[in-house]
């Protein structure tokens, strides 16, 4: 039957048994190695977490922003441009689900073309289509029905509901989110492997201690707890230090600005700053499990 989890067990574990602690000799090198590994891994985990959280946030924002907007592009001979624009506007005004529709003026269109053609684009002498910005209401628009109506009233109008932009952007952001979490899992796996190696080294170095303790009647749980507690607390301390340094590094990243894009937006927002707190706790759980498994394995070889 599984042992019942009780908070008093956790408290006993944290407080420890001073006598048992003394029985296992201090191991300076493995102690420093464990502390250092845990700190570095926690530092990296903060960045992976920040990447994942930011990517998730970005994915939601891009999807939301692009999902509620559409663009109508009217390409028509010079003489028909105004008539088709008016016809398209009257269709849009009577289409359910459209909150607003606005014809972009020449200055706005020039600004959109500036990155490609430079300033002072001679719009009048270029066959530039007229753009209409559409903002959808929360209920959404039946785009297929709208396309059919536009084809009848304004044949030069092409509706772009941003689907072809939205899908790859959302996919890229969600892949970043996934990679962030995968990195965290891998970081903790490496942390577990390092702690196992350090614990094995400590157990091998203390083979005589373990043998003497068994000879005088120590139960496995007594010996295991002495090692597990030591490695768990070391890892917890190291991971806490690494986590704090990681958070400080994230705080010190340049502030987010619209033109700086995704990189300057890397970090946590609001209650999201609490996320890094789980890193030391998870590290302690990994250390507990890894050391316990290593100690049990070693003890099985003794009778």
């Amino acid at each position: 039957m599984a042992k019942r989890f009780e908070i008093s067990h956790v408290m006993d574990f944290i407080i420890g048994d001073a006598q048992a602690e003394r029985a296992v000799p201090p191991t300076g090198f493995t102690a420093r190695l464990t502390l250092f590994s845990a700190a570095v891994m926690a530092f990296l985990a903060v960045f992976a977490l920040a990447l994942s959280v930011s990517a998730g946030r970005l994915s939601e924002r891009w999807s939301a922003e692009l999902a509620q907007s559409a663009t109508l592009r009217i390409s028509a001979p010079q003489g028909q441009m105004q008539a088709q624009t008016d016809a398209a506007m009257s269709v849009l005004e009577t289409t359910p689900g459209i909150e607003s529709a606005r014809v972009l003026d020449a200055a706005e269109q020039r600004k959109l073309l500036e990155p490609w053609f430079g300033p002072d684009v001679p719009l009048d002498s270029l066959p530039v289509p007229q753009l209409i910005e559409i903002v959808e209401a929360d209920v959404g628009v039946d785009t297929e029905a709208l396309r059919v109506r536009l084809a009848g009233e304004a044949p030069g109008a092409v509706l772009d509901d941003h689907t072809r932009w939205r899908k790859p952007l959302a996919a890229a952001a969600s892949r970043l989110w996934f990679l962030g979490w995968l990195s965290i899992v891998l970081i903790f796996a490496v942390m577990g492997a390092m702690i196992t190696l350090a614990a094995n080294a400590a157990l091998s170095a203390n083979a005589k201690v373990i043998s003497v303790m068994r000879l005088v009647g120590a139960r496995d749980s007594y010996i295991v707890d002495a090692f597990v507690r030591r490695f768990t607390l070391r890892t917890l301390s190291g991971a806490a230090i690494g986590m704090v340094l990681g958070v400080v590094a994230v705080v010190m990243l340049p502030a987010a600005r619209g033109e700086a894009g995704f990189l300057s937006d890397l970090g946590f927002a609001g209650a999201g700053w609490l996320w890094p707190l789980i890193i030391p706790a998870l590290a302690a759980v990994v250390a507990f499990a890894a050391t316990r498994a290593a100690a049990r394995r070693t003890l099985k070889e003794l009778r």
Binding site: A23, P25, P26, K208, V212, L215, G217, R219, D220, S221
Partner: peptide, 25 residues
């Protein structure tokens, strides 16, 4: 079981020829 053996060793005192101790205590 392993715990049984530990308990039994509390009832059997063993003196080894090489007298193993914990050298740091």
């Amino acid at each position: 079981t392993r715990d049984d053996i530990a308990d039994i060793r509390r009832r059997i005192g063993v003196v080894h020829q090489d007298c193993q101790f914990l050298d740091h205590l």
